[in-house]
Design a protein around this nucleic acid. Structure first.
Length: 502
RNA sequence: GCCCCCAUCGUCUAGAGGCCUAGGACACGACCCUUUCAAGGUUGAGAUCAGCGGUUCGAAUCCGCUUGGGGGCACCA
């Protein structure tokens, strides 16, 4: 078998899309598994919609996911790599022109002078007559005189590639098996060069895949019906035909092709929401493929080792955010403390910028909290919800939340006062969770309280919420002075409440 | 409209003719653990394998049809 060369060829007409990321990943996994070459090529011939910002978003997004290419553009100041370049189609225009010229010379392509208006009218008529919509081939056999007349009118021709009218194109798709499509269904002769001379997608794909010696074309199922056009172009250029593998589409919950209208499709958004690349890659790899075992949490290395294109599913897969969140939690729990700390910092900074906390916790403060926080994080962005109360100056605990069902405001105030004395005594000696808990438990026992009642009252007093990391660790993180101050403030509020409504 | 593809729990999937009274995971319920929230553990509910015909001693698995869904048919990619 010849060398494996695969490619991802996104178009910078939008931010990195989930589907592009998944296709890139499958190409990458296949290349790494087989020891082949993974190529990145930018399809930027749609000048009207392409932007540099999108290009950067795609480059950086794939990089963030840990998907590296062997050939393709560099990021930032990095130079382009690979000997089949350039890898930006706008820098390959002469090649398409040359290829088109060759096809014209061989009469496999011709100039077409139909205007967009004429084409539009033709299509309407076909639709009205319930005919198959296709280019009629009006310009397929113009005489030099006719061409001259059109030129004299000032018409600028497109170049069309001749699609044979009655041929069945067959290929063996790696994921779908044998596929046959009749050329009659292809819509007639294909425009390969616009009237301004720039090339169109189906043409550039075939020219570049041939020039870059692509061995396997791995892409979304939405290209399945277009494959015969590409095969015909490969044939016309005398290029070998690559193997095809059409991946199932990623779907909206209503099972239509995933779109930004109905789902969140930008990879950057997931990143901003605190998903980590390990989980994202893991999730994407398992959308439409599985190892065949019951393994679910897999690293990039494990995915590469197990990946097999021939066991990719053929049915579309609904994107399930809940499952992604679960995997994200799995991966967050596997991070080392230092790593987690580094990844959390930007999210805490964002909380500070948004005014949700009053100062940025120091590394020591974060480190002290890691072990209580790590198993509670579904996403990195959730860190604020978990520990925000530690980094605000003032807390205004809700009295109703503080008072357990069995108590009223006055008894809660009294209980907290007793607890405050106990805590104050402990803290002077040694401010550690193991030192705080026993005396509070004996207090509970002496007074015949329910442990949960007292602890909940303290929790709300000290954190302002009914759900928090473990209470004693939380108090340690808060510090002796601030814990007491918050208890005092809570007792004040409770007493005021008790006095107002006895 | 025409062409192509697809079809197992709500979702992602295992399943390559007997191992399937269909397994796992997410989500959901219960219980255990427990100071709350998580995490973890145990467990439950959840799929007449879209339907109908065939092939076969035997079908979720092979074939055909039907139905349903999706995708493609640009001087977009």
């Amino acid at each position: 078998m010849s060398e494996v060369r695969v490619r991802i060829a996104p178009s910078p007409t939008g931010p990195l899309h989930l589907g592009t990321a998944r296709t890139a990943l499958f190409n990458f996994l296949f290349a790494r598994h087989t020891g082949g070459t993974f190529i990145f090529r930018l399809e930027d011939t749609d000048q009207a919609r392409s932007t540099e910002a999108y290009e950067l978003d795609i480059l950086e997004g794939l990089h963030w996911l840990g998907i590296r290419w062997d050939e393709g553009p560099g990021i930032g100041d990095e130079p382009e790599r690979g000997s089949y370049g350039p890898y930006r189609q706008m820098q390959r225009l002469e090649r398409y022109e040359e290829a088109a010229t060759r096809l014209l010379a061989q009469d496999q392509a011709y100039y077409c002078y139909c205007t967009p208006g004429e084409l539009e009218a033709e299509r309407r008529r076909q639709e009205a007559a319930r005919e198959t919509v296709r280019y009629s081939g009006r310009c397929a056999h113009l005489t030099p005189a006719e061409r001259g007349a059109f030129e004299a009118e000032g018409r600028r021709p497109v170049v069309r590639f001749r699609i044979p009218p009655n041929r069945t194109i067959a290929f063996d798709d790696i994921v779908r098996g044998h596929v046959e499509i009749d050329t009659a269904a292809l819509g007639g002769d294909l425009v390969i060069l616009r009237s301004d001379g720039t090339p169109l997608y189906h043409f550039t794909v075939a020219v570049d895949d041939a020039a870059m010696a692509i061995s396997h074309v791995i892409r979304g199922e939405d290209h399945l019906s277009n494959t015969p056009k590409h095969i015909l172009l490969f044939e016309a250029m005398g290029a070998p035909i690559p193997q095809f593998a059409h991946l199932p589409l990623i779907l909206n919950p209503d099972r239509t092709k995933m779109s930004k209208r109905k789902s969140q499709t930008a990879v950057a958004d997931y990143r901003a929401q605190g998903f980590i690349p390990e989980a994202f890659v893991n999730y994407l790899a398992l959308l439409g493929w599985s190892t065949g075992t019951e393994e679910e949490v897999l690293s990039q290395a494990e995915l590469i080792e197990r990946f097999d294109l021939s066991t990719v599913n053929s049915a579309g897969a609904v994107f399930d955010r809940e499952r992604l969140v679960w995997l994200n939690g799995q991966w967050i729990r596997r991070l080392s403390p230092d790593d987690l700390m580094d990844r959390l910092r930007p999210f805490l900074q964002a909380d500070l910028d948004a005014g949700r906390i009053d100062w940025l916790p120091s590394d020591e403060e974060i480190r002290a909290l890691l072990y209580v926080v790590q198993e509670r994080l579904p996403t990195l962005a959730a860190v604020g919800d978990l520990i925000r109360f530690l980094f605000v100056k003032n807390l205004d605990p809700d009295v109703a939340a503080m008072v357990p069902k069995r108590w009223d405001a006055a008894t809660t105030a009294a209980a907290l006062s007793a607890a405050r004395r106990t805590i104050a005594d402990v803290g002077r000696v040694c401010w550690e969770a193991d030192e705080i808990e026993p005396p509070l438990r004996s207090l509970v026992e002496d007074r015949r309280w329910q442990a949960g009642d007292l602890f909940m009252a303290i929790r709300v007093a000290v954190t302002g919420r009914t759900a928090s990391p473990p209470l004693f660790d939380t108090m340690v993180a808060l510090g002796y002075e601030r814990t007491l101050a918050r208890l005092d403030r809570a007792i004040e509020k409770l007493e005021a409440q008790a006095a107002a409504a006895p």
